[in-house]
Design a protein around this nucleic acid. Structure first.
Lengths: 203, 203
DNA sequence: AGTTTTCTGTACCGTAAGGTACAATGAAAT
DNA sequence: ATTTCATTGTACCTTACGGTACAGAAAACT
């Protein structure tokens, strides 16, 4: 006899907080402080929950960071994936830069980019997170490269274009904008830099 | 009656280690781990000294970091100040990019740039260091802007050039290269990106 | 109603962080 | 040889970290 798994009928006390809202608050802390710089007291205070609730809902600090990172990519950073569907390679890059610059708007403490400042250099205990972020940055380069290769086949980009370098240049400017944003550079200034960066574009 | 200050005659046990060599080792640790990620055990082990020696010679962790940062600027990063004396604005930018790329050569763990990855986002206790690094990054932009303004007056750059944006673009690419280097991008790849970045240059 | 089950809050655990007291060491000065 | 005094090594301090035990609270099931 087979027993069907009862999916969502746990009984017991229901969660007193919204799990996605708490995740947004955690994201804000990680964004501002980085992975290592974010402490459990600061996280729990920002999330409005206590420690055992955090661990029950998210596992531990590292898993919480990963979930916040996912939410970052599908939320504030969603312009990146969206940009890929722009018609031309140039439009893709423009959408990425302008999307990032716009994302910095009205942001108080959490300036820059979580994928960059989450853990650029870190201690031994944060090595895993650091390495994962580095891989993610490289994965973004790879995605861009594939997109640009398609653009060459479409005749959008000139034949013989170095798509790998074009992708790395795009990622480099994006990362550079993140560093600038974290240094207090204003939105308007970032926009001017983005426009200048596009002058390097082929054609 | 005036007493002359006896300058270098302390008697007592002499220091058993070379203070500049120890500083170089500390720099390597900060470079790899960032300010927060560098622990006293790792620092003292790398420096080959014990804790009281470190505190006697350098003050504390924060002051040690500042001294390592100074040494970084006058050592590995000296190409930046040197680049300013290049004859043209374009040559300045080229020297900065190629200097940074060359600096990454033969570097094992300490990839990237201390000014960027030392403390991009950090906890409360590292706020001072983080802010100082952000100011330093902005100071670099200012220095470049002044250099480029001079280039306009020399007729090297076209009249009406937006020197502030040009300076910020240069710093953005440099910061982006630092992020890329910290992500494992190779020297050759960085060189190609640098060349592409120069395509945005005026004229 | 009572039982079950999950979440919440307090209070705590072990560990590691940055920093220091203090006695021992050893080179220079007398 | 003795005194002097900064450096060295051990051992320790306080504090804060990430993580958890456990009892109380509250919603669903019987």
């Amino acid at each position: 006899m087979l027993f069907l798994k009862r999916l969502p009928m746990p009984s017991g006390r229901i969660r007193q907080f919204d799990i996605e809202e708490a995740l947004d608050r955690a994201l804000e802390v990680f964004w501002t402080r980085g992975y290592e710089g974010s402490t459990l007291p600061e996280l729990t205070k920002a999330m409005g929950i206590n420690r055992p609730s955090l661990y029950a809902a998210f596992g531990n600090k590292e898993q919480l960071f990963r979930k916040a990172l996912d939410r970052y990519q599908t939320g504030p950073m969603s312009f990146l994936a969206d940009a890929l569907s722009k018609p031309t390679a140039r439009a893709v890059a423009e959408a990425i830069f302008s999307g990032f610059v716009r994302m910095q708007r009205d942001r108080d403490k959490a300036r820059g980019c979580l994928i960059v400042s989450g853990a650029l250099a870190a201690g031994e205990e944060a090595e895993t997170v650091r390495r994962e972020l580095a891989q993610l940055r490289q994965a973004i380069v790879k995605t861009l490269r594939e997109r640009f290769k398609g653009a060459v086949q479409d005749g959008d980009l000139p034949a013989g274009t170095d798509c790998a370098t074009l992708a790395r240049y795009t990622a480099t400017v994006l990362g550079g904008l993140a560093v600038q944003a974290a240094s207090g550079t204003t939105e308007k200034e970032l926009r001017l830099v983005s426009a200048m960066a596009m002058r390097a574009w082929p054609d």
